[in-house]
């Protein structure tokens, strides 16, 4: 085709005609420049819009990743609380000073975690059958969420598979695993436990303040590890124990 056009152009020149194919008028330089300019303006606008779509899509995808991690963690805490119960046995040790942590029943309580029922950085739960317990601990300085799980085997509390003594992830301490987040930055995590005393304890029977259904109020502040996604989300909810 191109060859044909060239041949016809050459033939036209030899015959003394203008170089225009078939005698048709072509575009002048001005027309061409104007057309290209208009096209460029249009292309610029279209490209900007296209790039904005790509950028927004990327940010939305990254936000969704963070959202998914957040949902995953919230669901984890919800399940631990609802499927189990507050491990009041461990919490009530904070009033004692001469604890013997080698005692079989106290092994699961972990003397290194900060005790307390009021807006502290840890949550201790025990399963409904009393055979497994877990600790969720937040380290404010390192901004790390740590997990530790115990299982009761023949009246002896042992770390669950994957939680080894001497193994410490993310500065969590012996036996802890880090709750790893790829995109989510946990800035604060606190748990408030109500009532502030075991309702089933004998000493609590006369104190109406403890005769309430146990529940946990969770405060979670998160951000993003991704530079392009900036947000500061403060999440608060309340979970009642179902057992």
């Amino acid at each position: 085709m191109i060859k044909k056009i060239i041949n016809r152009t050459v033939a036209a020149k030899r015959s003394g005609h203008s170089g225009r194919v078939g005698g048709l008028a072509g575009f002048t330089l001005i027309e061409l420049l104007l057309a290209i300019s208009i096209f460029m303006v249009f292309m610029l606008a279209a490209t900007n819009s296209f790039l904005e779509i790509i950028r927004t899509q990327k940010t939305a995808n990254e936000t969704r990743l963070i959202y998914a991690e957040l949902r995953n963690f919230v669901d984890y805490v919800t399940n631990e609380t609802r499927e189990g119960a507050i491990d009041y046995f461990c919490y009530q040790q904070d009033t004692l000073t001469d604890l013997d942590y080698t005692a079989a029943s106290l092994v699961r309580c972990d003397e290194n975690a900060e005790f307390g029922l009021s807006a502290k950085n840890n949550l201790r739960t025990i399963s409904a059958d009393g055979l497994s317990s877990s600790i969720i601990k937040f380290l404010p300085q390192e901004q790390t969420v740590c997990l530790k799980r115990y299982r009761n085997v023949n009246n002896s509390w042992q770390l669950e598979e994957g939680y080894g003594e001497g193994v410490s992830e993310g500065g969590c301490g012996s036996g802890y695993k880090e709750f790893a987040f790829a995109n989510l930055a946990v800035r604060d995590l606190r748990f408030e436990i109500l009532p502030a005393g075991d309702p089933s304890a004998a000493a609590a029977q006369t104190n109406l303040a403890t005769q309430l259904k146990p529940m946990v109020r969770m405060y979670l502040q998160v951000g993003s590890k991704i530079d392009t996604v900036k947000f500061d989300l403060k999440y608060q909810t309340l979970l009642t124990v179902r057992n």
């Binding site: 940010t59 939305a60 936000t63 969704r64 963070i66 959202y67 957040l70 949902r71 919230v74 947000f231 989300l233 403060k234 999440y235 608060q236 909810t237 309340l238 979970l239």
Partner: peptide, 14 residues
Amino acid sequence: ADNVNSLVANGLAQ
């Protein structure tokens, strides 16, 4: 992406 706000709202509703 505004769904993140709905997560906070869900927490408060819960």
